[in-house]
Amino acid sequence: MSDTIWTPSDVELARRAVRRRQRTVSLVIATVMTALVLGLLGLVLVLSPGWERFSETFLSWGDARASFAAIRDGIWLNIRLFLLCELAILPLALLIAIGRGTRSPWLAPLRVVAVVYTDVVRGIPTILLVVMLGFGVPALQLQGLTNDRIFWAGVALVISYSAYVAEVFRAGIDSVHPSQVASAQALGLGHVRTLRHVVVPQAVRRIVPPLLNDFVSLQKDTALVSAVGVFDAVFAARDYTNYNFNYTPYLVVAGFFVLMTVPLARLTDWLQARVVARERAGAR
């Protein structure tokens, strides 16, 4: 028992050496296993009987370069569509989720609408919604409404995804313990303020991973707008393959979509880690 500055004992130093060795061994095992598995998969691919034909039609560098510009222009549309739809989906979904949770008899119709909306919309394949709205609404020739197919395809995506995201929100809201509501009410907060300041903030933190799941899904489903002849990345790729009988552009599109999703996934991981560090303060 002394107040001198602590220096690790020999036991501790030996322990650290063991841990270092254990880490090195794990690293070696991880590297070798990864290389082995990826190498084997690559080998299976390259040694398959149709490999030559496959690489000509799917892995042609020349075709990738030739189609790149059109696909890049197309993906820009997908990105804009995704961002705008997401902005509309989040508040709409939250409203539907909250509407479902209301208890006031006056709001009964809202509850019914919310339930029917989620049930029906989630039952319809998204591509059908896109086609129905993208071709259907312009065909109605309604005064004052745009006939822009991109717009209506976007609306279809918003309708479809807000139903999914609403259910995610509802699960999050339900997961907040009733004691939280009780203590907010005990402080004199009304229903709306309780939701706004206590329940929803906690719910949102919990549902970040499933929410991201739906975002990524939406990013990819912006490709469905190609079904109504909108010139997005997938349409551009299909256009190219139709003329050149080479499927490499599809791989290019896939690469673009992966590039779009990875930053979003990392961002969410980071956000989540920050919340854990701040709110759970090392609790185990």
């Binding site: 602590w6 004992s9 036991v11 501790e12 322990r15 063991v18 841990r19 254990q22």
Partner: peptide, 17 residues
């Protein structure tokens, strides 16, 4: 632990192994 040892039933349980 950061230093020292814990022996339980004769074994050093702070050994990383």
């Amino acid at each position: 632990v950061d230093d020292g040892q814990i022996l339980f039933e004769g074994d050093d349980i702070t050994d990383p192994r």
